[in-house]
Amino acid sequence: MAKKILVVDDEHAVVRYMTTLFEDHGYEAIAATDGAEALKVLDETVPDLITLDLQMDKVWGPQFYRKMSKNQALKEIPVIVVSGLARPELAIKKAAAVVSKPFDPDELIRIVRDLIGG
């Protein structure tokens, strides 16, 4: 069965970009436009990987990550931070990877493969 990736980003174009990119590479992709929505998604489904924007209006990246890692069932899910902020690596220290916007799609796919295969 295809591995499932949750894309969290408040920019519609970026969400469509990433979900299509992942689907084109054989993954199943679901999306949320902010941290609050992403937490709701996690109530119902457990993805294999999460890509996370930092700057979002409702529940921004680090806050989402803190809440998510309190849940034993979710805390081991690898998170890739994808952000245009200046020093994104500082925001979530335990992130599995950090990718700066704008990103190279091949590079992102390579990182995803390294983390969850497929």
Partner: peptide, 19 residues
Amino acid sequence: HSIKGMLTGLDGGMYLLDS
């Protein structure tokens, strides 16, 4: 920061087109 976001969006548009 906002231009980086938009450039990523532009990338996205081009990717959708291309793919």
